[in-house]
Nucleic acid binder design. Structure first.
Length: 268
DNA sequence: ATGGTAGGTACCCTA
């Protein structure tokens, strides 16, 4: 089973790029963030036509929005409201698997970006981000065990490791790489002893990015990237993890998202 | 130290 996550930054504008990625990579399950559209204007027909007959979408006007598009059926699909808001940042689906006595849960997350100022007293968006990550940690721990097969993926808006950013030193005070966020994300990772599926393949001392700002003139040349998009799996899934792909080339071409798709293969 | 670009929307918000 091939699972892909992508912060698409408007699914309506990016539909041709999405169909291109789907055709090239043939993922079984596509998880999107920042779809930026209410469900009634989600381009669902084109995706069904492309083979993604099973859809779980949860969007709103202008901001946020998450979606799961699948070739395989779900047994359950859920919408989760976080930190007392209804801002379309967490949905989940359950997929049956022969390998486990219970379904595999897939959680599609769009963690708040957190604004510019890394100070909760001055910036409510940063406070919201930290509370969101805390709540995720608590919720995963309260609703599951480390023996359950779960996948958590999406735009986490945090680059936790030194080599998840182009300059550790220069980004220590930049939202996405501050010590307080990294500590919160560690708390979330500890909640179910989550394994970082991408760092399973790419050593921690090697640079790895999934996002490059639109503000850089030549993103490839300057290469000031960050690894904001993640795929985490619980321990029972680790023996089934076969491959990963970061579709860096998707940052090129006509009307690219500032994030690139990230993918894993699980034999389920 | 600053400002740079993109998307959606409605004249400004978020990233």
């Amino acid at each position: 089973m091939r699972i892909l996550t992508w912060n698409i930054n408007s699914v309506r504008l990016r539909l041709p790029r999405l169909l291109e990625v789907a055709g090239q990579c043939q993922p079984d399950i596509i998880c999107l963030q920042e779809t930026k559209t209410p469900d009634e204007s989600f381009p669902i027909k084109a995706l069904i036509k492309a083979g993604y007959e099973h859809t779980h979408i949860h969007g709103m006007k202008s901001y946020n929005g998450v979606a799961v598009l699948s070739r395989v059926p779900f047994t359950t699909s859920e919408i989760h409201h976080r930190v007392g808001k209804e801002d379309c940042r967490h949905i989940s689906v359950y997929v049956d698997s022969r390998k486990f006595g219970k379904p595999v849960q897939i959680h599609c997350l769009y963690i708040p970006a957190g604004g510019d100022e890394p100070d909760t007293a001055l910036n409510p968006k940063f406070d919201h981000k930290l509370k969101f990550v805390d709540e995720m940690a608590r919720w995963f721990r309260d609703n599951n065990t480390e023996n359950d097969p779960l996948v958590a993926l999406g735009d986490f808006n945090i680059a936790p490791l030194e080599h998840d950013v182009w300059s550790h030193r220069q980004l220590l005070k930049v939202v996405s790489h501050t010590p307080v966020e990294v500590e919160k994300l560690k708390g979330m990772q500890d909640s179910l002893d989550w394994q970082d599926a991408i760092r399973h393949f790419i050593p921690e001392d090697q640079k790895c990015y999934t996002w490059w700002s639109y503000r850089n003139k030549d993103w490839r040349k300057s290469n000031r990237g960050r690894r904001l998009d993640h795929i985490w799996i619980t321990k029972p899934l680790v023996p089934h993890l076969k491959a990963h792909t970061i579709l860096t080339d998707a940052r090129d071409g006509l009307k690219p998202s500032d994030h690139v798709p990230v993918m894993i293969d699980l034999d389920l």
